[in-house]
């Protein structure tokens, strides 16, 4: 695959940061007083949640750009970003669920953040399904851009209304303010992990876009051969 110099540097940087992040998360950060070792899942849960939301923001931005410029380049970025977002959103839900089980004894709690993440995951899923059901490239780009934009705006409203819903139906506060009591070493580790996952996102995005270009090329040759 034709790799540019920039993407090589990005790849190496992500790789090094990943190793450092693993060291920080498992060895450097001290054991938490009440939760013990389990809390370390936080260093993967929070960054993947952050990237899941970031990725959807990128999808929304590129969808707007596509509708304005009508250049399929933007659609390629939007859909690649959504696919990575779906992956990271899945990781967020799984790690969150494991954490909840060990922490609160249940796999799932319907609190604002968890529920919003679940709905974000569902929106990603419907976006991906929609793309799968349209054959014409340009049509697919237009329709999925519209869903990408609406989905992103909706996630914000969903979060607001679920939070409100929860305040109307008081529940034992779970998971609230868990970052507030972090020791400096933990906070540093968390921030480093967030940074690393952001780098990971851009590395994955680059290779996904390259992959998409390659598959479009194969598709194109298929069609040309079919015509002859």
């Amino acid at each position: 695959m034709p790799d540019s110099k920039a993407s090589k540097i990005l790849f190496v940087l992500t790789f090094v940061c990943m190793i450092v992040a693993l060291y920080l998360a498992f060895l450097y950060a001290p054991v938490e007083a009440t939760q013990g070792e389990v809390y370390r899942i936080l260093f993967f849960h929070v960054p993947s949640a952050w990237v899941a939301f970031l990725a959807f923001g990128v999808t929304c931005f590129c969808s707007v750009a596509f509708l304005m410029k009508k250049d399929l380049k933007w659609d390629r970025i939007a859909s690649s970003s959504a696919e990575i977002g779906l992956l990271l959103c899945t990781i967020t839900l799984i790690t969150g669920s494991i954490w909840a089980k060990s922490e609160w004894g249940i796999w799932w709690a319907w609190d604002a953040r968890l529920t919003t993440t679940l709905i974000l995951w569902l929106i990603y899923l419907s976006y991906a399904m929609l793309r799968g059901y349209i054959d014409v490239e340009t049509k697919r780009a237009y329709l999925s851009s519209v869903v990408g934009i609406i989905g992103f705006i909706d996630v914000l409203i969903v979060y607001g209304s679920i939070r409100w819903w929860r305040t109307q139906h008081p529940q034992p506060v779970i998971g609230g303010g868990d970052e507030s009591g972090l020791a400096p070493a933990m906070l540093f580790t968390l921030l480093f992990c967030v940074g690393t996952f952001t780098l990971l996102f851009f590395t994955l995005l680059r290779s996904k876009i390259e992959l998409q270009k390659a598959s479009e090329e194969v598709d194109y040759f298929h069609k040309v051969l079919a015509q002859k």
Partner: peptide
């Protein structure tokens, strides 16, 4: 007049 559907 030119019309392209993706690469086609």
């Amino acid at each position: 007049l030119t019309k392209q559907y993706g690469r086609l």
